[in-house]
Simulated assay, not measured.
Amino acid sequence: MKQIDKRSLWTKEFVVLSSINFFLIFMYLLLNSIITLYALNELGTTTGQAGLVAGIFIIGALMGRLVTGMLLSKVNGQSLLRFGLLFFALTMALYILDFGFTFFAFTRLLNGFAMGIATTIIGTIVVLTIPEERSSEGIGYFAVSTALATGIGPFVGLFLMPRTGFTTIFLFCLLLAVLNVMCGWFLSVPSKKTNNPTPYLKWTHVLERTALPISLIILVMTFCFSSILSYISLFAIERNLITAASYFFIVYTLTVLVSRPVTGRLMDQRGPDVVMYPAFLLSAVGLFLLSSATDAVVFLFASLLIGLGFGNLSSISQTMAVKAVSREGKARATATFLIFFDIGNGLGPVLLGLMLPVIGYSVMYVLLGIIVLLTILFYRRLSLR
């Protein structure tokens, strides 16, 4: 196995894995920004069914993470990476076929399953390539690939949709998925593998107990943030802000790119609390502002606050989950964090989609802002332990 220079952060492996991760998240969020509109307009679904189409992808990703968590200690990481990327490309091709709502929902489930495998193994391998003394900084830079995709993916989706149509977007994503397979297939990556048989499965083989508290917090936060990922386009149409909506995630991304290197160093030097408490407050204020936004300025300022808040909270939380365990437990800690991340992202569109016809978008964002504020109390109990 190729040895990685322990003092080096920007290795070939780190850069390529970060790039693959970017395109995976880019495709997921590009599709997620238009998928509810596709379900409503092309498949003739209800709002609840559109939410299911969005959320079932994350349910599939969760299943993929669970399976990967069980296999990480027994199967070579490079083999898992190749399988995940190839399966993602194959399931991406199914989007082009039009066999109705049930088939499309099943396609989303399988595509999410492949995504869960690929992103979990990538997140685990990246941790092994980062020097221990630069873990917060390294994970922060890796998380920038997700942050970039979070902004560019929805922007491209909302930009292409009225200009090209859904089929062209699906073909574009398929091309990117194939390129990802080509990039990852010949990459030499570090991995850990044990041939010791496991007589029976226990939850501790998949989840890391020490990472559970911070993972529960990220579950709540991603539940709240999923309201933006899945419904911001519909909310913008209601408020006549559809042009501003395409720039919402660009502002979010630029904010995260500027702030994350700073917050990563702050955590390394002064601990996580100096970042986490302001991030909770900024996220809540951003949701409150979003609920009342009627013009582009307030709408995009809410994006900036949410970028400073959730955009940094997500990366700092992942760093906390990984740093709390030994090097041998980092794979399980990464899988645990991402599993709970996916639960929040998966439950959000489904449950909120059922509530939206009753409460509307403004009330939804106010309620989610209150939930974020209440989460501070849970985090305080965690930080005092």
Rank of each mutant, 00 (worst) to 15 (best):
E328W: 01
I122C: 10
E208H: 01
V178M: 04
V350E: 01
P213N: 12
R327E: 13
A143D: 14
L109Y: 06
Y247H: 11
G48F: 11
K323H: 10
Q49R: 08
Y361G: 06
Y231V: 04
G286W: 05
S315A: 15
E208I: 00
V275G: 07
S315K: 09
W203F: 10
Y252A: 07
Y277P: 05
I237S: 14
K202R: 13
G44A: 13
E132V: 11
L356Y: 08
G138C: 04
L81P: 03
T243D: 15
Y28Q: 14
L367R: 00
F22V: 06
S19G: 10
V298C: 11
F87I: 12
I59A: 11
Y231T: 06
F26Y: 15
G64F: 01
V206T: 09
T167R: 12
I306G: 03
F104E: 07
G64E: 01
L94T: 11
L201G: 06
V181P: 08
L287K: 04
N111M: 08
P278S: 09
A324G: 12
N345V: 05
G311E: 09
G344N: 00
L351Q: 04
T36C: 02
M92K: 03
G348Y: 03
K330E: 10
M267L: 11
L62P: 04
V67R: 01
F301P: 03
L31P: 01
I25D: 01
T263Q: 10
S314C: 07
L110Y: 07
G69P: 02
P190G: 06
V366S: 05
S226R: 06
V298T: 15
L373A: 10
G60W: 01
L241Q: 04
F103D: 13
F14R: 02
L176R: 02
L373Y: 05
R385I: 12
T129L: 02
F22G: 03
W203A: 07
P199H: 03
L62F: 15
V178Y: 01
T146G: 15
T150C: 09
F101E: 11
S259V: 14
N312H: 14
